[in-house]
C-alpha cells in the first residue's frame, strides 16, 4: 500500500481518470438507452394539446386518457389478444419439437447430424420474405392464412433453430454418465429425457421459452405477410397507428407502450435468463 501512495501524483491520476471516464460513459449510455422510452411514455401521458405543444413540454398534467381510449379501440385490443395466443402456441410448439430433437442430437446417434445443423443455420439466417411469399399462397390454399396456428407454425422457422442450439448446450452440461446409469437401470431414451433431462434443465427451458416469446411477440415481417385481420398481432396493431404520426401522438405512443410492456417486464424479471440465452445463442450461432 505504501508503495502505491508513494507513486507520483501524475501516475495515480493516470489510473483514476480512466475509471472516472468509465463511470461517466456508462452513465451517458444508460441515459441514451432510457431517455427515448421515458419521453414516449411522457408523450403517452399528455393530453392531445400538451403533446403537440411547441416547444415540447417537460412539465404537464399526466392523463390516462390515451390508454383508456385504447381500451375501447377494438382492433388494437384484439391484436393484443391475438399476440398472446400466437405467442403461447408458438412457444409451446417450439419447445415440444426442439426438446426431443436437441436431446437426440446431443445424446443419440443421429445420422446426418451435420446436415441438420447446417439446415438450422440457413433457416435462421435467410430473410423472412424468402419463406413468407411462397407460404402466402400455400396458406391461402390450405386455409391456414390469417389463423393463429398458421402464424405460430411459420414462426418455427426462426425459433426452432434458436431453441435447438440453446437446449442442446444446456443438455450438454449434463454428465453423459447419468444417461448410461439410467440405461443400466432400465430407462428408455424417452424416460431419460422426461424424468431426468427436462427436470434438470428447467432454468434453461425457461430461458429458451423467454427468448422465443420475445422474438415472436416482436415479429412483424412474417405476421404482415400471413395475417389479414382475424390473427393480426400487436405489432400490426401498432403499425395501424403509423398514419397518425402528425395528428395523434397520444394514441400512437400509448399503443407502443402497451405493446412493449410485457417484454419490458420480462427484461426486469428474467434478465439473467435472457442474458444467458443471448450469449449461448451467439456462441452457438
Amino acid at each position: 500500500m505504501n508503495f502505491v501512495f508513494a507513486l507520483p501524483r501524475a501516475v495515480r491520476l493516470g489510473r483514476r481518470l480512466p475509471l472516472a471516464w468509465a463511470y461517466v460513459f456508462t452513465g451517458a449510455m444508460v441515459l441514451f438507452s432510457l431517455f427515448p422510452v421515458y419521453w414516449v411514455l411522457a408523450t403517452a401521458l399528455k393530453t392531445k394539446r400538451d403533446g403537440l405543444a411547441n416547444p415540447p413540454l417537460w412539465l404537464f398534467d399526466p392523463t390516462a386518457a390515451n390508454f383508456l381510449k385504447l381500451w375501447t379501440h377494438d382492433t388494437f385490443k384484439y391484436t393484443f389478444l391475438n399476440s398472446v395466443i400466437v405467442t403461447f402456441i408458438g412457444v409451446a410448439l417450439s419447445l415440444a419439437i426442439a426438446i426431443p430433437a436437441a436431446y437426440a442430437i446431443v445424446r443419440m446417434k443421429v445420422r446426418g447430424r451435420n446436415i441438420v445443423g447446417i439446415w438450422l443455420i440457413l433457416a435462421y439466417m435467410l430473410p423472412e420474405f424468402l419463406f413468407v411469399l411462397p407460404m402466402f399462397s400455400l396458406y391461402q390454399w390450405t386455409g391456414l392464412y390469417d389463423t393463429h396456428v398458421g402464424l405460430a407454425l411459420m414462426y418455427q422457422v426462426h425459433v426452432l433453430p434458436l431453441s435447438i442450439w440453446l437446449l442442446s448446450s444446456f443438455f450438454r452440461e449434463i454428465n453423459p454418465a447419468i444417461d448410461e446409469a439410467a440405461r443400466i437401470e432400465g430407462a428408455t431414451h424417452f424416460q431419460i429425457l422426461t424424468r431426468i433431462y427436462i427436470p434438470c434443465t428447467m432454468p434453461g427451458m425457461g430461458a429458451t421459452a423467454i427468448l422465443n416469446t420475445i422474438w415472436i411477440w416482436n415479429e412483424l415481417a412474417i405476421a404482415i405477410g400471413l395475417t389479414f385481420s382475424r390473427a393480426q398481432t400487436v405489432t400490426l396493431g401498432v403499425t395501424s397507428f403509423r398514419g397518425y404520426t402528425a395528428l395523434d401522438w397520444g394514441a400512437m405512443t400509448a399503443a407502443s407502450i402497451i405493446a412493449i410492456i410485457p417484454m419490458l417486464l420480462f427484461a426486469v424479471v428474467a434478465q439473467k435468463h435472457i442474458v444467458k440465452g443471448l450469449t449461448l445463442g451467439a456462441v452457438k450461432g
Binding site: 405493446a259 417484454m263 427484461a267 435472457i274
Partner: peptide, 11 residues
C-alpha cells in the same frame, strides 16, 4: 441498457 433490445422494431 438492455431495455431497447426487448422492443419490437415497429415500436
Amino acid at each position: 441498457i438492455m431495455l431497447p433490445l426487448m422492443m419490437s422494431g415497429i415500436v
